[in-house]
Nucleic acid binder design. Structure first.
Lengths: 248, 248
DNA sequence: CGCCTAATTGATAGGTATCAACGCTTGTGG
DNA sequence: CCACAAGCGTTGATACCTATCAATTAGGCG
């Protein structure tokens, strides 16, 4: 059962995620208009769904606190992860075209989202061009995100895919004010593998390989990046050499 | 050098692609407003680019006649195909978020596109809610297209990927009033392979395999679908059996 | 008609999946 | 506080799929 907070909960002005969210670049007047249509937040516990594929589409969401995975069901029972979503990132945009959600969104940890009723957002966009442009940018950004991932999946080895994933996650954490070197992975090896098109055993092997090369330090879900340059080189396709003798 | 046609060229009302284009579901008054901002069409010869990655973003486009591929450059010189686009389908939406085009669009045959100046479209969307919603649906549709392809790339074998590709292309041709069984491929094996994450030799082998199984008939770029059910079964993951003895 | 590119087919190598076993972490209850 | 169970993660051996390299054939354009 979702928890609804009254509209009196703190608005976008106070939000830590604002610089990376829909509210980015809005002036105070426009921000107030946006705040007015975001009437509630919702809490989603770890493992629970925010919405499921084929649910009627009414709202889009912005992750406020926590993180989510999105899944597409896949003929039989197999679930394909299509993305991990951090604070400030939008959820539900894929539901606009069919009036039903096309994927399922599940919280990776106890999380809250801002509920944005889509018809109200459309009204606001007709009145406030800055808001309109921001929505367009957000949707365009999702399209670009998709084609990047497409490229990664179509053209890169498992090693490169994982390097891309780690560097990308690191950058997204950095923008949010977290350390780019200390990753606290909220998802399992299997979920990572699903997104990246490989099996969980392969994910694990690549982690071990990177650790042997002193690129990262892996401690289960805690990953420490030791060598950004090295990871970037792998990301760009420079094949890693065998490990040189380590200094003491 | 692009050819520009005057605004007097036939508008969306007469367009064969209208049912699958931005103009879908618009009333006559709204259609006239859209026609008014589409001031020109542009001809792009086979192999030429409509726009290139990093070009300043001013317009989106709708394919009027012909077809395009979109590419992302890939670190070094490698080009990754991210989509094939038929009449009525949008081009350039990925440029909104950065004010620059994120990919390169190249005509697969002599083609024409409708030029839609994006600032004018945004203005129109603020006035005409049906137009606004249509734009949102179109962008959402692109997001869904991306995540579907992502799923195909992440989870399917080469055989299934090609089956998905053929069935998808067939459906898109059918909607446009062409025979769903007679595919005239405008792209090379290599370009198909790039989109689908496999090498051109593998594409070729899969074509031969499908032909042996009497699912399709391949004659270079002319492909005839003989057994939609069989292709769909492969698409859904039912492993194809060895060929039964053929009649006569 | 001939050149050049695209496509097909074969042989082999390499990367990742699969199957299997073990170890670690986490949470629960005595 | 410790014992135990269950799930997650790691590692190894092997098989399979697809890439790679190579040779040949077909097709398209000047």
């Amino acid at each position: 059962m979702p928890t609804l907070k009254p509209a009196s909960s703190p608005g976008c002005g106070d939000c830590r995620a604002r610089p990376v969210c829909l509210a980015r670049d809005l002036g105070p007047r426009e921000l107030a208009r946006l705040d007015a249509i975001i009437q509630a937040r919702r809490t989603v516990k770890r493992g629970e769904s925010l919405y499921r594929a084929n649910d009627p589409f009414d709202n889009i969401y912005a992750v406020h606190v926590g993180s989510f995975k999105t899944l597409i069901a896949h003929g039989d029972g197999v679930e394909q992860v299509t993305g991990f979503h951090l604070s400030g990132e939008p959820l539900g945009l894929d539901g606009i075209c069919t009036e039903r959600h096309n994927c399922t969104a599940i919280a990776l940890e106890d999380s809250t989202v801002c509920i944005i009723p889509f018809p109200l957002l459309e009204s606001l966009c007709r009145e406030v061009s800055a808001m309109q442009h921001q929505v367009h940018r957000m949707m365009s950004g999702e399209i670009v995100r998709g084609s990047r991932l497409m490229m990664v999946l179509a053209a890169m080895s498992a090693e490169r895919r994982l390097a891309v994933f780690l560097v990308n996650l690191s950058e997204r954490l950095k923008v949010r004010g977290y350390s780019p070197a200390e990753l606290s992975l909220r998802m399992s090896r299997e979920e990572m593998g699903s997104l990246l098109g490989m099996k969980l055993e392969t994910v694990s092997r690549m982690f071990s390989k990177f650790q042997q090369q002193r690129l990262i330090n892996v401690q289960g879900k805690q990953v420490q990046i030791l060598d950004f340059g090295g990871l970037s080189r792998i990301e760009r396709g420079c094949t890693s050499l065998p490990i040189a003798a380590a200094t003491g």
